[in-house]
Amino acid sequence: MDKYPLLDLFWTMLWFFLWIMWLFLLFKVIADILRSDDLGGWGKAGWLIVALLLPYVGVLVYVIVRGKSMGKRDVKEAQDREAAFKAYVREAAGASEAHAPKEGKHVDDLTKLAELKDRGAITDEEYQRAKTKLLV
């Protein structure tokens, strides 16, 4: 049985993890090439050919040349996803308000009335009349 010293194991694991990191970077670069709006079809094809035929050099050159805009595209995509999520939540919340019980519909109005009463803009009697009107 051959010996496999600890240092050899360390070097094997190091190279394995570096290879995995490079694969992640390669897929990230390919995804960025395909979603990039500022590249035309020929530009995308050229970068894909460089990245796939000369993988280590192609990925490194792409990150050097287009790394800054790559980050900007990531930020823009994250902002777009967040805006879409917020719009969905607002839409879903609006739909649930339409089916809410009558008492739940006027919470904002009651809060405004209480603020007006606290500021002295309306009297206790006016507050009670408006409150009764909202709840009935």
Score class of each variant (00 low, 15 high):
V29W: 01
I33V: 14
L48T: 11
L53H: 01
L9A: 07
A87I: 07
T12V: 06
L53N: 01
L48Y: 03
K72C: 04
A98E: 14
A130R: 00
M70S: 08
V75R: 13
G94T: 05
D37Y: 05
G46V: 08
D32A: 14
L18P: 00
D32S: 15
K76F: 10
D32V: 10
V57N: 02
A98L: 13
Y127L: 02
E103P: 04
R66F: 05
F27C: 07
F24E: 08
H106Q: 11
K133N: 12
L135A: 03
F27L: 14
G43Q: 14
L7I: 12
V136M: 12
V59H: 00
E91P: 03
I49K: 12
E115G: 09
I122K: 00
Q128V: 07
F16H: 05
W11D: 10
P55Y: 02
Y88T: 15
L60T: 01
V63C: 06
L48A: 08
I20V: 11
G58P: 07
S96D: 08
L52V: 08
D8R: 04
L39Y: 14
D8T: 06
L110M: 10
A45Y: 15
D2E: 05
L14M: 08
K133I: 06
E82L: 10
F24T: 10
K44F: 05
R81A: 09
V75K: 14
D108M: 11
E82Y: 09
L110A: 06
L110R: 04
M70E: 02
L7F: 04
V89S: 09
T132G: 06
T132A: 11
E82D: 09
D8Q: 05
S69T: 13
L26N: 03
K117P: 00
Y56N: 05
V136E: 14
M21V: 13
M21L: 13
T12N: 01
K3I: 04
V89W: 11
L34G: 11
A121M: 10
A114D: 14
D124Q: 02
G67A: 06
M70K: 01
K117I: 02
F17A: 05
D38F: 15
D124T: 07
A78D: 07
D38S: 15
L52E: 01
D118Q: 10
F16K: 04
T111I: 12
L54I: 05
I20W: 03
G104N: 12
P5R: 03
A100E: 15
K28S: 03
S69E: 12
G120H: 11
I64C: 02
G41N: 13
L110G: 00
R35S: 15
K76V: 12
K117S: 09
L60R: 00
W11F: 12
L23R: 04
D8G: 02
K131F: 09
D108Q: 14
T12K: 04
E125S: 06
V75Y: 07
D108P: 02
R66M: 07
K68W: 09
L54M: 12
A84Q: 07
T111C: 06
W42F: 15
R129M: 11
K105S: 11
V89Y: 11
A45R: 15
A31E: 14
G104P: 03
V65R: 10
E77Y: 11
M21I: 13
L25Y: 01
V59W: 01
A95S: 14
V65K: 06
A45P: 10
W22P: 00
W42H: 15
G94A: 08
L7T: 06
